[in-house]
């Protein structure tokens, strides 16, 4: 078994087909620029949700500070691309943003990940607020509350798609490796995991900083696509928005997060014509899902599991 096995080739072909179809629809103007914004939001939200899912859904560490890491990526990316104003500068900005976020993730993760449950949630919430306030007060660099304006727009459908696909592949690879299983065992039973030789602190910090890394990518893409950022965009509500996608799709399901990000973005876009009722519908949808499927749309299953199950039952027949 090597990298170029049947399964990987099929995945690659599917990715290319999916990209071409959407690109075709954009070129043919079936998808107009208004819907293009929805697609960009979906891509960014998928990256955010899947990276948070790694921390909260798979490793079981409840984090309410994901927007903080996103803002680090957004500011680092925006400042780099504003100073270089080239595609290479944009890509460097994404990388710098991601590394900066991962670095902060490690620094913050080591002390806070000793905490459990709601205590951890509150600590991460506080951490995100600290990051926001720091950006608010670094007037010389971040332009304070007014934010950064006129960030060159290099993030287009191509780059958004590439980064989303890469994020999904890498996080999926991680979860299906021995290191990913070590993270999942922490969620299942921390004491047992430690007794089976797993350094729980190490894997918690690892998951946390990988999550921060990809949140940083999402932030940098966001800043370049929407060419305007300010600290308030990355407040408590943004973290909750990401968490809602993860819970809605199912904690511990990557495909669940993807579906939830798409569904919620489409619902939001559709409801924009009913401005007054928008938040009511949105809230109702969430309440209904939580009553009838408290584990989220997919729970801990993946869409691909359904196909596997079918194959198995066919074999038995």
């Amino acid at each position: 078994m090597k990298v170029l096995n049947k399964k990987n080739i099929i995945t690659l072909v599917l990715i290319l087909v999916f990209y071409s179809v959407i690109q075709g629809l954009i070129s043919a103007r079936v998808i107009n620029s208004f819907y293009e914004i929805t697609i960009a939001t979906i891509c960014i939200n998928i990256i955010l949700a899947v990276s948070l899912n790694l921390v909260t859904g798979f490793t079981g560490q409840f984090s309410l500070g994901h927007a903080g890491f996103m803002s680090i990526g957004a500011y680092a990316g925006a400042l780099t691309v504003m100073n270089t104003n080239s595609t290479m500068g944009f890509l460097a900005g994404v990388l710098i943003g991601a590394i900066a976020a991962a670095f902060v993730g490690i620094i913050i993760g080591i002390p806070t990940l000793r905490l459990k449950g709601d205590y951890l949630a509150i600590a991460t919430l506080g951490m995100a607020e600290i990051i926001r306030v720091v950006f608010l007060n670094m007037n010389d660099i971040t332009n304070g509350a007014a934010g950064l304006n006129g960030i060159p727009r290099y993030a287009n459908w191509l780059w958004l798609f590439v980064f989303t696909a890469v994020t999904l592949i890498l996080i999926n690879n991680f979860i299906k490796s021995s290191l990913g299983r070590a993270c999942i065992s922490i969620r299942e039973d921390e004491i047992a995991a430690e007794s089976m030789g797993i350094n729980t602190t190490k894997y918690k910090v690892m998951a946390f900083s990988i999550g921060a890394f990809f949140a940083g990518i999402a932030g940098a893409l966001y800043s370049s696509y929407f060419y305007f950022i300010k600290p308030d965009l990355f407040g408590f509500m943004k973290s909750i928005d990401i968490l809602v996608i993860v819970v809605f799709g199912g904690m511990g399901s990557i495909t669940g997060s993807i579906i939830a990000a798409i569904v919620l973005a489409v619902v939001t876009t559709f409801l924009q014509s009913f401005a007054a009722l928008r938040m009511i519908f949105y809230a109702l949808l969430l309440i209904i899902i939580m009553i009838f499927r408290p584990q989220g749309l997919l729970g801990t299953k993946e869409i691909t599991d359904l196909f596997k199950f079918k194959k198995k039952s066919e074999k038995i027949e």
Binding site: S178, R181, A182, I184, S185, E188, I191, M196, G197, I198
Partner: peptide, 27 residues
Amino acid sequence: RLFKDLTVLDNIRIAMHQNVKYGLTSA
């Protein structure tokens, strides 16, 4: 104290983790 929501195979593979010889990049 089993990992209740994981398969029998995964329970065992997790216990084998400490002897796994690949790191983050390989994963």
